[in-house]
Computed example of a mutant assay.
Amino acid sequence: MIIGIPKEIKNGETRVSVTPALVARCVSLGATVLVQKGAGMPAGFADAEYAASGAKIESKARTIWKNAELIVKVKEPLESEYGLLQNGQTLFTYLHLAAVPDLAKVLLKKNVLGIAYETIEARDGSLPLLKPMSQIAGRLSLQIGAYFLQSQNGGSGVLLGGVPGVKSGAVAIVGAGNSGAHACRIAAGMGARVTILDLDTRKLDMIDDLYRGAVTTLAANPANIEAAVANADLVVGAVLIPGAKAPVVVTRQMVRQMRPGSVLVDIAVDQGGCMETIRPTSHESPTYKRDGVVHYAVPNMPAMVGRTSTIALTQATEPFLVRFIEKGVKSAIEETQGLAKGVNTRDGKIVNTAVAKALGYA
């Protein structure tokens, strides 16, 4: 099997889809690994490390795309890469097709076997390849929110942890999954007044038990969300429906009730965002103001900590790459429980139900 590792070209992206250690394992199993020159540098992995691990270093992305049977990436192909996709090729990456319908059309036209990290399921129904990036994004959301709350950065000048005699800042987290739970952990650790909302009472029970009542838990109905958002200095949107477009749960009317200089961080922007006023931003230009509120919605947030994110991601993808090499991609899909859920496109069709529905193919 020939595996291709092109350099990521999304704005501000610093992650790479394999580490030198993972290359060495793939090569030991009989795979040929083509790595584009400089692909690992933003995450601190030099070309020499890849070469020493058995990779073949290629200077041009086009060469890798042309020769690889399996392309392994971090982010979805951008428009400038659409023409590089080969007919019948296998693509293993974060796809988030609900937010990029044009890419879906290209994958269908070229009969690409598109396997999305974000919809692969474990036996317990969890999302093992989405989990590490969700955890990182959740933790980063508080760092980011605290930074943009500073007066010099356009915020209202609130210190989330407060000081003696001055109440701490209020954080509202909508969604108590991986991202939301990790955002909650950092917010509570900073000393903020935290409210977390979710439809799943089991998740709220776990939060309540863990923090012994120090975090307010609420059912995520419109009235509770509206009240929590109106009183928050920082709102973190962390709503996820695997493969589907994120539902809008924070409306513009809710945003208008917030104090000027408050901050919104939408982790769900990869799937279209869960806030009505949100639009994707970039690491180069991460925020904008609407209705006096700072909006942050960078789709590849974990790229802010590229080395940590790369190591966390590749530890999660390694077992699947090993299966692909040992069994072949199609056999691995048939034999590995949950991997079939990761298949979004195959033989010119959208085969994941949630993705098909989100794109209007079902």
Rank of each mutant, 00 (worst) to 15 (best):
L264Y: 12
H96Y: 10
E13Q: 00
L218G: 03
G348L: 10
D270R: 08
I196M: 07
A230L: 06
A219M: 15
T310D: 00
L129N: 04
L97Y: 04
Q152E: 13
T336G: 01
R193T: 09
S309V: 03
G213A: 01
M254Y: 14
S134T: 03
M41Y: 15
F92W: 00
G342E: 03
N344T: 13
D124W: 09
L129C: 00
K289S: 12
R15K: 12
V74G: 05
P6C: 06
Q271L: 07
I186A: 14
S126P: 10
G54R: 10
G83S: 06
P42M: 02
H283L: 11
K109T: 12
T310W: 10
Q315P: 03
E276H: 08
K203M: 02
L234W: 01
S80H: 12
S151G: 11
T93W: 05
P302D: 09
N300E: 03
C26W: 07
W65M: 07
A48S: 14
N111I: 09
D198M: 07
A116H: 01
F148S: 11
S156P: 06
A219D: 13
T345K: 09
G177L: 10
A228H: 04
V269W: 13
L103R: 05
Y361L: 10
Y288H: 07
K357N: 15
G189Y: 01
E76F: 05
M206H: 13
S282C: 11
A356F: 06
E334V: 10
A214M: 12
G273Y: 12
G138E: 02
M258F: 11
G38Q: 09
A220V: 05
L70C: 09
A340L: 01
A228F: 04
G162K: 09
V171L: 05
Y117D: 07
K109S: 13
A246C: 08
L129G: 01
M254P: 00
R15G: 10
G237V: 00
M254I: 07
G213T: 05
V18Q: 08
